[in-house]
Amino acid sequence: MTPPPPGRRRSTVHDVAKAAGVSRGTVSRVLNGGYVSEHAREAIQTAIREVGYVPNNAARTLVRQRTQAVGFIVHEPHSLFLEDPNIGGILLGANTALSQADYQMVCLVIDTDRDTDRVARYLSGGFVDGAVIVSARQHDPITDVVERLGLPVAYVGHPPGISRPWVGIDNLGAARAITARVRSSGRRRIGMIAAALDRDSGSDRLAGFREALGDDFDETLVESVPLYAFADGEAGMRRLLERAPDIDAVFGASDAVAAGAVQALRAAGRRVPDDVGVVGFDDSAWARRTDPPLTTVDQPAEGLGAAAAEAVLVQLSGGVADAGGILLDAPIVWRASV
C-alpha cells in the first residue's frame, strides 16, 4: 500500500522574514501589534500572503497564558434560545465587539443541571479568558464559579447581590411608562402576563406595572408564567380570560408573550385592539409580525451585547469596568395594538 504524501510544511516567521527581507524581530513586532515603518509593514503583509503564513495561536496561548476566547453564557432552555430574538441580538452584538478585538466567542447554553456542571468544568479548565452572562439568577452555580475564578465578566441584566459589571435597561421604569400609556388610552381592566419572575428583568417589569396602576392594581389580573415564550403567553392569556372575562388590556412581559396573548384572544373571539389592547416588551421580530403590530418597549439587544463584551475587554486589558452598571435607553414604540 502506497503511503500518503507528506503534508505541506507549515510556514514560519523565518519564512516570512526571508520573503520580506527583514529580521524575524521585525516580523514579530508586526504580528504583536508593535511599531515598524509603513514600508516594512507592507512588505511583511505581502510576504505573509505569499508564503501562506498562519500564526500558531496554540503556541501564543502558552506564552501569553491567554486563550483569546470569551464565553457567551445563556441561562435559558434550548427552545427559548431559538425562539427569543433578543438573545440572538445580544449574541450578535457581543460577537461584533469581540471580533473587532480579535477575540473568539464561545457560546455556552445552560438548560439542565448537567449543562451547569459541564459549563462549570469548562470555565474552571481555563478555556476562556472572560465571559458575558445572560439571564443569570442569584446564587446560581455558574456565578459562584465565575466569582471563585476571578474571571473577567459582565452580565446582561443585574442579578441581585452581584457587584460585577453589568449592562441593562431600566425594566421597572419602562414597564411603568408603557402601563401608564395604556391606562391613559382609557383602558381600566388592565392585566399582565408576568414572565420570568426568578430574574431581575421579569420581577422589575411586574414592579413597574404595579407602580403605574397604584391603587387600581388588582392582583387577580396578574398571571405568572415561567418563560418569555409564545406558548406561555398563550396559556397565560387563556387563564386570565377565564378568571377576568371583562379584561380590556393586557401587558405581556415580552413580545413573544404578548404575541401568544393575541393568539389566545383571537381564538376566544376577542378583537385586538377593539375589545382588548395588548402591549409587549422588546420591539423584537414578534412585535412586527403580530397582527396588529404590537405597541412595545424598544430593548436595544445588540447594544446590550456589545456593551457587555466591551466591559469584559476592558478588564482583559487591565482596566476597571464600571461595577455600577450601564443603562441603555428603552423608549416606547406605539403601534396599532392599543
Rank of each mutant, 00 (worst) to 15 (best):
S124H: 08
A249P: 02
A194N: 06
V145H: 03
M1T: 12
A307F: 05
G277R: 00
E310A: 13
V312P: 01
T61V: 04
L241S: 02
A306K: 02
V338M: 07
G157Y: 09
I73N: 02
L213I: 04
A268K: 08
H14V: 13
A212R: 03
A229G: 10
D84A: 12
L91H: 08
G214K: 07
A207S: 15
R210L: 03
N86Q: 11
S254M: 02
D329Y: 01
R118V: 13
L304F: 07
D102R: 14
H78I: 13
F281K: 00
D115M: 10
L62K: 09
D246P: 08
T295N: 01
V250Q: 02
V272E: 02
L241F: 09
A231F: 05
V338F: 03
A196Y: 01
A59Q: 09
A244S: 15
V333F: 05
E50S: 14
P226R: 05
L80R: 03
D144L: 11
R121P: 01
I87D: 00
R289W: 14
A20K: 01
L221W: 04
F281A: 00
L294H: 00
A19L: 12
R10T: 14
A330F: 00
P5Y: 06
A20S: 10
M192N: 04
A307T: 14
A97R: 10
A136I: 07
T46V: 12
P141K: 04
R188L: 10
K18A: 15
A175S: 13
D102V: 12
R271F: 06
V167I: 12
G305L: 04
I87E: 00
A229R: 06
R270K: 14
I162V: 15
I169A: 04
V119M: 07
N95G: 05
S163G: 11
V70A: 06
Q104K: 08
P292Q: 06
E83R: 08
R24Y: 04
A253L: 06
N86F: 12
S28R: 11
D322Q: 10
R118F: 09
M105W: 00
M105L: 14
Y103S: 02
S184L: 06
V314C: 09
G25F: 06
R49P: 01
A285S: 15
R183G: 04
S185V: 03
P165N: 11
V272M: 02
P300V: 05
W166T: 07
T112N: 10
G126M: 09
N56S: 13
V30E: 04
P273F: 05
A306N: 03
Y155W: 08
E211Y: 04
R188H: 15
P226K: 07
G150C: 11
Q104E: 14
N32P: 07
D232L: 07
G269L: 09
G168A: 13
E242K: 09
L98Q: 01
A212V: 03
D216P: 06
